[in-house]
Design a protein around this nucleic acid. Sequence first.
DNA 1: CAACCCACCTGACTGC
DNA 2: TGCAGTCAGGTGGGTT
Length: 273
Amino acid sequence: MAMPELPEVETVCKGLNQIIGRGLAIDEVRLHRKDLRKPFPKLLNSKLKGLRLEAVRRRAKYLLLDCGPYVLINHLGMTGSWRLEKGSESELHDHFEIRTSKGRLIYNDPRRFGLLLIENKGEEYLNPFLSHLGVEPLEGDFSAQKLFQQSRGKVSAVKVFIMDQKIVVGVGNIYAAEALFRSGLRPQKQAGKLSKKDCENLVGSIQEVLREALSSGGSTIRSYRSASGEAGAFQNQLFVYGRAGESCRVCGSKVRTEIQAQRSSYWCPKCQR
DNA sequence: CAACCCACCTGACTGC
DNA sequence: TGCAGTCAGGTGGGTT
């Protein structure tokens, strides 16, 4: 019931931390099937039972759950969500749960594109799913200079470039479209043809749109919900995403759409060059 | 390597 | 009402 880019994952992360407070003892971990995108880790319950779920962190679009000597790594895929279930109810697509004194922390994921892995604490960033990831967009090392350097020689479209998690993490289909709109750049523009100024604009726009979305609790297009069950509000501030055929909020031109790398792109033909 | 294309899966919606 | 087709916020893996 989610579909998360950085602002949504960060919002889920905050919600989980709210729930666990200073930490929760893990009574039991129950698996309701054998896998998501990958098989569930072996011996999960015996490893985690009796430990404390201390805190949840975010790296890129991954949630990292600190449990003593282990870190649970969770990706929400397109439709993953967490909730605290105080009673005994279950829902369709509940795939695993962490039982605590405060209730059951349940992971639900209809499409099952999500992921659950375990690593030893301190080795979580060496996991193959995390090891190749690029810079965090809202931290200091995301710079126009570096983006410019990395874009040299790239023949792929700028939209594909900024969604490449090796370049910068957390930007998905919605926020790529919105950042490009705010930068005045067409999604089809070749990454290798970006000027330094374009890269400065892009860094600023990516940070701006992610921060604004974060402060609105993310975007709920279909089904995204935070850990406390709240919808986001940023879907109401979108300039182009999902607005094909509607008029641009800045100039009134018709918003266009086209498939790029098997994903829909949206742009204003007048505001974006 | 980079660029491309596919697969994974369910559910909501559209059009006939 | 039913059924086929399309689309969805992600990403690893295979091929060229």
